[in-house]
């Protein structure tokens, strides 16, 4: 091959900013906006933004499966819920409540669920995978819903928030502003980590499974093992979102383990644009914003999911790439 790399052809004097530079400048600009946001926004919108980030993290974790490995999970509520209940358990059992213990137990809970789901569901492909993940999440729902002595059953668990404790550095109560920053830090770090995963050789194998599973297997990759690891990663980050949600709202309820949470996660992904990692956050924001506007205009009783469902179907038919689909290649470069 004698073709000259494109960069060398382009005259150096007129060099545009490289892709990496543009990406990082954009990343820092958005981060700066999100860091400043809680200082200027009123309380309601501050919490709103924090929740969008948490839902965005959940959707982003599921994007690793939908967008990169090509498997639609309808069971992310299980990971989210186990993260939530794991954190709740640690916060209730240990006094005074410890932030890092909650994080650890939340992640351990989600990892357990993910191990279980990964082991069984990755034997199946496409729709079969989607259905079995859905059914597995219902197993966890039934267990949490009926095991009242431990999980509080229908009423869920209520607990107090731990201090934001950074060893040797900082120890204070969470305010809604520091909560926002904490969530933002976790979500941003998760984004960078997931982006690193998808661009690593491991991520390349995942994408090749999405494109052509049979050929990937023929090349010699142990497809099942890759799928399992990707489900595990995805479940861990979904559990992280669950821990954050528990910290934010100080309760854990079986409703969040119910299938509708998984459904919302898939909707965020499709609306924002699968295979982009940031798209799902945008999708979550769009969904929550439309929902909030609808209930502002038409009252709390308005069945906001009817118009949102219609928007969702129209987007599947006419805009299957989602809101950020146009930037997909650029974001993954």
């Amino acid at each position: 091959m004698t073709t000259v790399p494109l960069e060398k052809v382009r005259p150096l004097g007129k060099a545009r900013l490289s892709h990496t530079a543009v990406f990082w400048i954009g990343f820092c600009a958005i981060m700066a906006l999100l860091i400043v946001a809680p200082l200027v926004l009123p309380e309601f919108w501050r919490r709103f933004l924090t929740e969008i980030l948490i839902w965005g993290l959940l959707a982003m974790s599921s994007d690793l499966l939908i967008g990169y490995t090509g498997m639609i999970s309808f069971g992310h509520s299980a990971f989210f819920g186990l993260g939530m209940y794991g954190a709740a358990g640690a916060l209730i059992a240990h006094s005074p409540p410890n932030l890092w213990l909650a994080l650890f137990f939340g992640l351990a809970g989600a990892a357990g669920a993910a191990l279980f789901v990964a082991f069984f569901s990755t034997r199946l492909r496409d729709i079969y995978f989607a259905i079995t993940t859905l059914i597995f999440s219902q197993i966890f729902y039934v267990i949490i819903f009926t095991w009242t002595p431990v999980t509080g059953g229908e009423n869920g668990l209520i607990f107090s928030r731990p201090h934001l404790w950074l060893p040797f550095l900082y120890d204070a109560r969470f305010t809604s502003t520091t909560m926002h920053w904490f969530v933002l830090a976790v979500v941003a770090a998760s984004y960078l980590f997931l982006r690193r995963i998808t661009q690593s050789p491991f991520g390349m194998v995942l994408q090749s499974i999405r494109e052509n599973e049979a050929r990937t297997r023929a090349i010699g990759y142990a497809v099942e093992r890759y799928k399992m690891v990707s489900v595990m990663f995805s479940g861990l980050f979904a559990g992280l979102a669950g821990v954050l949600y528990a910290l934010q709202n100080q309760f854990a309820a079986p409703d969040f383990v119910y299938f509708l949470t998984s459904g919302d996660t898939v909707i965020y992904n499709v609306m924002g644009g699968i295979g982009t990692l940031v798209g799902p956050i945008v999708g979550a924001g769009f969904f929550q914003l439309v929902r909030d506007l609808l209930s502002r205009f038409f009252g709390d009783q308005f069945p906001y999911l009817i118009p949102l469902g219609m928007i969702f179907i129209v987007m599947i038919i006419f805009l299957p790439q989602g809101l950020l689909g146009f930037a997909r290649r650029w974001l993954n470069k």
Binding site: I72, G263, V266, I267, L305, I306, I313, I316
Partner: peptide
């Protein structure tokens, strides 16, 4: 895509 579309229908 059809799973997603019918899921939307079920929500509605």
């Amino acid at each position: 895509n059809t799973i997603l579309a019918t899921f939307g229908v079920s929500l509605i």
